[in-house]
């Protein structure tokens, strides 16, 4: 089964979602991420969704849950690069991802993670 690759940089894990995910793929990513947080002793998780032109409630929930699980595992999550049209749609849908940190791009996201760790 196809998987979304997870990269490690220092004590951070980086995921760039480049494909229109179906639900099983999203769940697989969530499983992989939580496992890697533990295995790599990661302190930060950066999820780049700049390539996604649709985020529906399922993927939104997957992102929220991943962030919550990461927190439990003592890692910070930051979601970066959400497109304006996606943000407007999510707000209209009623999904505000309240527990998730966000940043405009990967660079700012990494800076945020470093800053939080200090």
């Amino acid at each position: 089964m196809e998987r979304i690759p997870i990269l490690r940089m220092g004590n951070c894990l980086i995921v760039a979602i480049q494909v229109d995910m179906h639900d099983r793929l999203a769940i697989a990513l969530q499983d992989d991420l939580t496992e890697r947080i533990v295995k790599d002793k990661a302190k930060g998780v950066l999820i780049d969704i700049s390539a996604l032109d649709v985020v529906d409630s399922f993927i939104g929930r997957m992102i929220s849950n991943t962030a919550a699980m990461a927190t439990v595992l003592d890692a910070e999550t930051v979601v970066v690069g959400m497109q304006p049209s996606v943000a407007i749609t999510l707000v209209e849908l009623g999904l505000t991802l309240s527990g998730v940190s966000t940043a405009l791009n990967v660079e700012k996201g990494m800076a945020l993670l470093q800053q939080r760790r200090r």
């Binding site: 032109d53 649709v54 985020v55 529906d56 497109q83 407007i88 749609t89």
Partner: peptide, 11 residues
């Protein structure tokens, strides 16, 4: 924005 809204609703 309207494309995204409609596609999201469809999903």
């Amino acid at each position: 924005v309207d494309q995204t809204k409609f596609v999201t609703a469809a999903s």
